[in-house]
Simulated scan of single mutants.
Amino acid sequence: MLRARISGHGHNGPRNCCEWDSKTHTYFINEWDHFRWNVWTDCGFNAIYPQGGTWPFDRAGWCPGTKVDEHDFELTPFVHPGDSVSIDYGIEMYKDNGEKDGEYRMSHQLFTYGPPNFYLDAAIEDIIAPSSKDSYSRINPICSNPVVVIRNMGKVPLKTVTIRYGLKDEPGFVFEWHGKLEFLEKEEVVLPAPDWRDHEKSLIFEVQLLDPNMERDERPKNNFLSSTVLPPEVLPNKFILYIEPNNLGRERDNEYMLTDDCGSVVYRREEFASDTLFRDEIELLPGCYEFRLTDKVEDGMNRHW
């Protein structure tokens, strides 16, 4: 397996290479370009927020305060034990416009491993929501669908697994996952929403994997995981939402939506004006809602410094 960690830095040329320039990077295996990816990161959900400066802007492979993105590429289908293999790396061609003064800082690693230790081994790798982890703070707390990560650690493809989940010491829920994960492949799974009502304190959320491929898991040790449930904000059914953009002209690209637990839009504002206070009266039925403020060009509506 190949792993790449690459971050762009510098403000050179018309596209501000390489911090602000999305370029294609390539691994060549025996002179064939088998792996291509863009070194570019969406910083809008940066968990280290708020910050001063330009922290919301997307960057080449990193965001302020967070780790550099990792990209893993499985080499096994392209090599055979005992054979030699040529591995090369390339970056999208630079132009003669000052870009050459930008730079990429990078780490490339090659991992080798033997056959899988287990024939059938499904693992619960992470709980994204509900979670109290700082890295998931932008999407928590929740009152809707849990999101978990499962991985196949076994030799044979993982095609089915039973996911049992819910709050500790309370009746749980069951979800039957179907798909296909090869060895070491993983997938985010969105689970049906349980009933989060009447829980106004931090609780424990538990997830357990059962019966992968309708058989016995050879390594049950990695079948269970738990997380802390943070209670969401509880508002009265009537409230007033105030939004006031700065006098910068960037608010034209912003809008907000308030959606219910079925994804239906119940309130929406699609237009803002500079240096203007907007006062929206909101009235909601009891339930779970999500407020989302979006920006088409991802430059915010307030000053950066």
Score class of each variant (00 low, 15 high):
residue 40 W to L: 05
residue 50 P to A: 13
residue 50 P to G: 01
residue 70 E to R: 06
residue 27 Y to N: 02
residue 88 D to Y: 07
residue 50 P to K: 09
residue 27 Y to S: 02
residue 88 D to I: 04
residue 69 D to H: 08
residue 56 P to V: 13
residue 73 F to I: 13
residue 93 M to C: 09
residue 43 C to T: 10
residue 46 N to Q: 12
residue 83 D to K: 14
residue 38 N to Q: 15
residue 59 R to A: 08
residue 69 D to R: 13
residue 34 H to P: 01
residue 74 E to I: 10
residue 23 K to I: 13
residue 44 G to F: 06
residue 55 W to F: 06
residue 53 G to N: 05
residue 24 T to F: 01
residue 48 I to A: 13
residue 37 W to Q: 06
residue 22 S to F: 06
residue 100 K to S: 12
residue 67 K to S: 09
residue 51 Q to R: 05
residue 58 D to F: 07
residue 94 Y to S: 14
residue 98 G to E: 06
residue 73 F to K: 05
residue 20 W to T: 15
residue 58 D to L: 02
residue 34 H to L: 15
residue 37 W to G: 08
residue 68 V to D: 05
residue 58 D to W: 05
residue 61 G to A: 15
residue 33 D to K: 06
residue 70 E to L: 04
residue 40 W to F: 11
residue 29 I to L: 00
residue 71 H to W: 11
residue 100 K to C: 09
residue 35 F to N: 04
residue 42 D to L: 12
residue 30 N to D: 14
residue 86 S to P: 02
residue 97 N to M: 15
residue 76 T to K: 01
residue 105 R to Y: 01
residue 54 T to D: 07
residue 75 L to P: 02
residue 81 P to Y: 05
residue 19 E to H: 12
residue 41 T to D: 02
residue 45 F to P: 14
residue 31 E to C: 07
residue 71 H to F: 12
residue 85 V to Q: 00
residue 23 K to P: 04
residue 89 Y to K: 00
residue 34 H to R: 11
residue 48 I to S: 10
residue 102 G to V: 02
residue 86 S to G: 07
residue 66 T to R: 02
residue 51 Q to Y: 01
residue 25 H to P: 13
residue 69 D to T: 14
residue 39 V to Q: 02
residue 59 R to N: 11
residue 76 T to I: 04
residue 24 T to W: 03
